[in-house]
Design a protein around this nucleic acid. Sequence first.
DNA 1: CAGTGGTCTAGACCACTGG
DNA 2: CAGTGGTCTAGACCACTGC
Lengths: 249, 249
Amino acid sequence: MIQPMDSLTPAFSPLYQQIKDLILQGLQTGEWKPGEAIPSEMDLAARYRVSQGTVRKAIDELSADNLLVRRQGKGTFVATHAEQQVQYRFLKLQPDSGDSQQEGPADRTIIDCKRQRANADIARALSLRAGDAVLLITRVLSFAGVATILEDIWLPATPFKGLTAERLSTYRGAMYALFETEFGVRMVRAEERIRAVNPDAQQAELLGVTNQAPLLSVERIAFTYNDVPMELRRGLYRTDTRHYRNALS
Amino acid sequence: MIQPMDSLTPAFSPLYQQIKDLILQGLQTGEWKPGEAIPSEMDLAARYRVSQGTVRKAIDELSADNLLVRRQGKGTFVATHAEQQVQYRFLKLQPDSGDSQQEGPADRTIIDCKRQRANADIARALSLRAGDAVLLITRVLSFAGVATILEDIWLPATPFKGLTAERLSTYRGAMYALFETEFGVRMVRAEERIRAVNPDAQQAELLGVTNQAPLLSVERIAFTYNDVPMELRRGLYRTDTRHYRNALS
DNA sequence: CAGTGGTCTAGACCACTGG
DNA sequence: CAGTGGTCTAGACCACTGC
């Protein structure tokens, strides 16, 4: 039940926070799908019996978290990885000079896609049990013809049942867009751990470098709604003509 | 002059944006110094002849940018690098296991602090002219007794006139806190470019690693108010027991 | 033109802090 | 207790979109 602020209620939360949670629920249950419009602020205000300003504050925060996108005059939309200007929203590797837009899309080569049992590490990262089934995708990204990123991607097998190397190869668009449209899994945020490492012989071969070449090791865990981890990525990045860019504030 | 919204005015901006700019101006001119309280929302509303809600929206955005900090019941304060829980606000290197808080403060050793003329690279990064005077500080940070970070820090000589190795060594607290209190320079945001590299012989020596050891190269430009660059840092990070952590959303 | 989000106001009341 | 920021409302009007 929606409750106005009240210090006597043991665990009270502001109204806008409750509205935020209700909207979030609509997103998780798929009532509103990525790319679709949610009801207008006035409609939501009527539905939840609160003022438009309260709904507005809830939507403000959700759109600050990149879960919703407001478009003046049109409506408020569920954020999506498809139909986005930038090809890779979470990839921070940029050319040292010039714009990553102008050089055209990366060339993606699937090396492998197989079913495995998760070891302890993988299971912990994905909140699974050791031995649970996972998919392991290995691929290489090349920019301007140069192999630059080699990554292993682990996905829990159940939500991604039916994903094949074939489907990955033929899909045009970001992998996260495919996850949305084919499996209903939307990645919302991610955490990365970065190190400097040397590749092993096989990795060096795939990236066309020696095994003394220093590479960036980027381990990413991506989360869907509700902070549920749905992907583990371990990438090796060449940084001889590119760099990982980060903004601090 | 403060203007309400009006489509006929050629370059109009929302009232709250104008208030935001006015507050920003007070921060830049030092009317309100780091750590101090700014006037209450009601006072500012009266001063600028707008409603409290409009002031509130301006402060909301400034505090989202980490320029102000709200404290319910007390007031709104100018953000500061001093009196902060975390020792290093911009340093994202964390121990692989455990908390960076519990292991105690880093040991800081100043290797060198000298006056130089900026070369083209340094000058461009700091928006100076080649040949302008800069300070170059070289230091090593050690965690739990292990030399982990070696960094060169370039500062424009004029605003930091009088900074010495002696002062840097004796100051207890973050370097950015010293910049605030002694030179009135507050760092507001920063950009980093990260690569994997090998050290040269001298760098390897200072970090106690071989010159085949892969290291993180972190180049940071820090900005004060108004996007003015005031510091260039080039750091080498050991990542054998630590990692650079980043949150993506 | 109607419908959407965006701005602004005035006023009420709540929650938190410190004297 | 007074003073601060935090929440919530109701209503007005502006700016943008698409029909």
